[in-house]
Amino acid sequence: MKKIALSIMMAALLGACSTTPPAAIVDPAAGNAGKDANSSEIKTVDTSKTSGKSMYPELTDPSNVLSQRRVYFDYDSYVVRPDFNEMVQAHAKFLLSHKDVKIILQGNTDNRGTAEYNLALGQKRAEAVNSMLKALGVPAGQIEAVSFGEERPLENGDTDEAWSRNRRADIVYSGEQSQ
């Protein structure tokens, strides 16, 4: 009973402070009132949440190669450069010795071109690292290759330097929050 009274009160409070944006138009000709698919009222959904922390200190120890997570790519290239071989191999070794650990490979592009096409291009960078890890024996079940396209630049701006920083694949261990 108390609950009902409170919810009525809440409805009244909500009604009192609702803002000007209109509800569906009441068109007397149509004789139609109330909420339709076109109603202007919108409820906000908030997905913000706190980050988890990795259980393995070696993954975040700056002196450990496993703390290196970014594989950079040349312009218009979807091939892992030789200078990243050692780093990718270290991650393969870690994954092979920790079968319960999973990673997400996040491909990224610079901001030239359309956002949705860039998402597909970023996928190719994640897949390049994925192929290399698989060739080193890491089971497919431990890896997920995805793309952020141009949505998460490390550097803003339309310069060659910014673009080269944004052409990359990031390695994110499960439970971590990417930066």
Partner: peptide, 24 residues
Amino acid sequence: YGAQTVLKSRMPIMSPKWSPDGGK
């Protein structure tokens, strides 16, 4: 005019597309 927030996130959001009836 009259901007209203549908979804808030600390991660990117992209490609909003309207349903034909405008409700989703």
